[in-house]
């Protein structure tokens, strides 16, 4: 065991990042399920993956962490086959943008296997998505919408360190194919200081995979977000509370398919107003789905037209300044909330 020891991994007490939590979850999963294995480009040590999510894991489990060719189609095909035969493959794509190359395997095969054959297909695809400054059109996209479109796929998008850990483990335990959307900005910027002497793997998950969470309570407006946007919305909510005295309720969707609409309806019963924020483009997206459900089933609760904050309708710009104004940011979210609250 070179580099990181199992003890170091298992006892990551202190400050834990979102990325640490993912690594920890995979480490614990490999220990818990002998049928689990990790497959991805350059995931083996010493490189340990594009974002170092698998650093140390191949050293601890040399046979079960394997490098893949640079071909997401072939990787996904192998994983579907292995899953049908009883394995629990954990695929790592370097960037979710390249899930398009594996599109056929994911939506035609993984999504339909159980429907067609009665055989479960318990695979997890880890998709690093969302923007980073300078990443440009091929390394910053958020393609969750086209994955949620297909019946048979579960799509999750954790926003916290705690959820990154537990939801990845729950996804690996799940017998359906799970598209596990990670956020690249959260990898290093989302941190949590664990309780003294307690590591993540000693905590228990608070919610099942398919439930949304109210992460901030308020009565003026419900703001629904997921993944990296929860951080932006929480910042906007704090600003509105201290500067404008507007208390918004923030819901972290956590799971994009199936959607936990009941938590949103319950919140709307308190607030009557809805702002939907996602980092992806708006057209046909998760926000469109949430709002269509709300207008159909909770019309009587609405006191203002639901509003959306999304990426602008262009490919993602390379220039850091352009990128910053292209993605939804706290200032734009604050404005949308104020307009909705004042309606």
């Amino acid at each position: 065991m070179a580099g990181v020891t199992a003890e170091q991994l298992a006892a990551s007490v202190g400050t834990t990042t979102y990325l640490d939590a993912l690594r920890q979850a995979m480490f614990d999963a490999l220990a818990q399920w002998p049928e689990a294995f990790i497959y991805g480009q350059d995931v083996e040590d010493p490189f340990g993956g594009a974002f170092k999510a698998t650093k140390g894991l191949s050293t601890a489990y040399p046979e079960r962490v394997r490098n893949a060719p640079i071909c997401e189609d072939a990787m996904a095909g192998l994983a579907v086959g292995a899953a049908i035969y009883g394995a629990r493959p954990i695929l790592e794509f370097q960037f979710s943008d390249f899930a398009s190359i594996a599109f056929n395997q994911l939506v035609n095969h993984a999504a339909t296997t159980f429907y067609r054959t009665g055989k479960p297909c318990p695979l997890v695809v880890r998709l690093p998505m969302g923007g980073t400054a300078g990443g440009g059109p091929f390394h910053c996209q958020s393609p969750e919408a086209w994955l949620t479109y297909h019946p048979g796929l579960i799509v999750v998008a954790p926003s916290s360190v705690f959820d990154a850990y537990h939801m990845l483990k729950q996804s690996i335990a799940c017998d359906d194919p799970v598209m596990f959307c990670e956020n690249k900005l959260l990898y290093f910027h989302e941190k949590e200081v664990s309780e003294a002497g307690k590591s993540l793997n000693e905590s228990t998950p608070q919610l099942p995979l398919g439930k949304a969470a109210v992460v901030r309570e308020g009565d003026a407006c419900t703001v629904v977000a997921y993944s990296g946007m929860v951080k932006e919305v929480m910042e906007a909510a704090e600003r509105l509370s201290t500067r404008n005295g507007i208390l918004v309720e923030v819901i972290d969707l956590r799971c994009l398919k199936p959607l936990d609409m009941q938590t949103i309806y319950d919140s709307l019963a308190r607030t009557g107003r809805l702002v939907m924020v996602n980092e992806a483009w708006s057209y046909g997206g998760v926000g469109a789905q949430v709002i269509s459900q709300v207008t159909q089933h909770a019309f009587h609760l609405l006191d203002a037209p639901p509003r959306r904050v999304s990426a602008l309708e262009t490919p993602i710009p390379y220039h850091p300044e352009l990128w910053r104004s292209h993605r939804p940011h706290a200032r734009r979210i604050v404005q949308a909330i104020i307009e909705t609250v004042q309606y």
Partner: peptide
């Protein structure tokens, strides 16, 4: 472009 209003609001994509 008669049907498009170019005024910017919080969500210019709509």
């Amino acid at each position: 472009s008669e049907e498009i209003d170019t005024h910017q609001t919080s969500d210019p994509t709509e």
